[in-house]
């Protein structure tokens, strides 16, 4: 039970961070960001790296990667939808959420793998 709660806390925290970072890469949003888009990619890998140090074993890392990707996609969707609420869900939001979700999943997973390697696994 304690393990599940720990995994959920890590997944939610990592997912919010990953979703917020991925939102900085979304089309129109990107133009209003105060930092270059490359920083968002670096942040995603760093989030994965941080989680790679915290998980116990690669299997738990993979599971966490999925939780982070799900939570990150929800955060990303809400970040893009909220300022555009009066125009509904335009195509660019769906496109950005789709690509953002995949980017979050693969980059955090790379980070987790690197984190596990640094941890000596």
């Amino acid at each position: 039970m304690r393990k599940v709660v720990r995994l959920l806390i890590l997944g939610i925290a990592g997912g919010i961070a990953a979703g917020a970072s991925a939102a900085l890469l979304a089309e129109e949003f990107l133009l209003f960001s105060p930092v270059p888009s490359n920083l968002a990619y670096v942040l995603l890998v760093l989030i994965g790296l941080g989680m790679g140090f915290l998980v116990k074993g690669m299997q738990e890392g993979l599971l966490l990667g999925v939780v982070v990707a799900l939570m990150g996609t929800i955060t990303l969707f809400l970040s893009l939808y909220w300022p555009n609420i009066e125009i509904g869900i335009p195509e660019f939001i769906l496109r950005s959420v789709w690509w953002g979700g995949l980017t979050i999943f693969f980059l955090t997973l790379i980070g987790i793998f690197v984190g596990r390697i640094f941890s000596g696994e």
């Binding site: 890590l10 925290a13 990592g14 919010i16 961070a17 990953a18 917020a20 970072s21 939102a23 900085l24 129109e28 949003f29 209003f32 960001s33 105060p34 930092v35 920083l39 968002a40 942040l43 760093l46 989030i47 790296l49 941080g50 989680m51 790679g52 140090f53 915290l54 970040s79 909220w82 300022p83 984190g115």
Partner: peptide, 23 residues
């Protein structure tokens, strides 16, 4: 791990907040 995660969370949320404000 905790430091990296906390720093990334803080930085990404602050950057998202600034971007949301401009947007």
């Amino acid at each position: 791990g905790r430091s990296l995660l906390a720093a990334s969370l803080l930085l990404s949320v602050v950057l998202l907040g600034l971007t949301e404000r401009n947007y």
